[in-house]
């Protein structure tokens, strides 16, 4: 009886491990696609190191917004652009961030997954479904 129990536990652990591994792989693939989007559409302003440009373009590396759980805000910045000139982590930025409304839900999920897990950032991935849900609520 005990043996069976242990076997079951081991099998369950294996399944969990495997699915974690495959979801890690999915996240890694999403981040890799996101990097391509980043290089073409975001790097010019936010720079290769995610550090932005002092006084012009906000940094993404270490940004509290990028690392937060408020995905709706992040999706909105990308779909609508961002030109509010509000204080971001104690600084103001002069440039205008254009909307990238032509990006698909998947591409937005990918680029967000990339910026949230790259440089010193350690926030969780974003799925296309999550983007779809918040995007549909944007006016």
């Amino acid at each position: 009886m005990q043996r069976i129990f242990i076997t079951v536990v081991i099998v369950l652990l294996c399944i969990a491990g495997a699915s974690a591994q495959s979801s890690n792989k999915l996240v890694a693939a999403s981040a890799a696609r996101g990097k391509t989007v980043y290089l073409q559409r975001c790097m010019v302003c936010h720079q290769a190191d995610g550090g932005g440009v002092p006084k012009l373009n906000a940094p993404l590396d270490g940004s509290s917004a990028v690392n937060s759980t408020n995905l709706a805000k992040l999706v909105k910045y990308i779909v609508k652009g961002f030109n509010d000139r509000v204080e971001i982590d104690g600084e103001f930025y002069e440039n205008a961030m254009p909307a990238a409304a032509d990006l698909t839900d998947q591409q937005i999920a990918d680029v967000l997954t990339f910026i949230r897990s790259n440089w010193s950032n350690k926030a969780g991935p974003v799925t296309a479904l999550q983007v779809k849900q918040t995007r549909s609520k944007l006016k």
Partner: peptide
Amino acid sequence: NGFSGKSVVKNPRD
């Protein structure tokens, strides 16, 4: 020259 303190500036914040 030499204001940046770097021989090459890759990213402006440096």
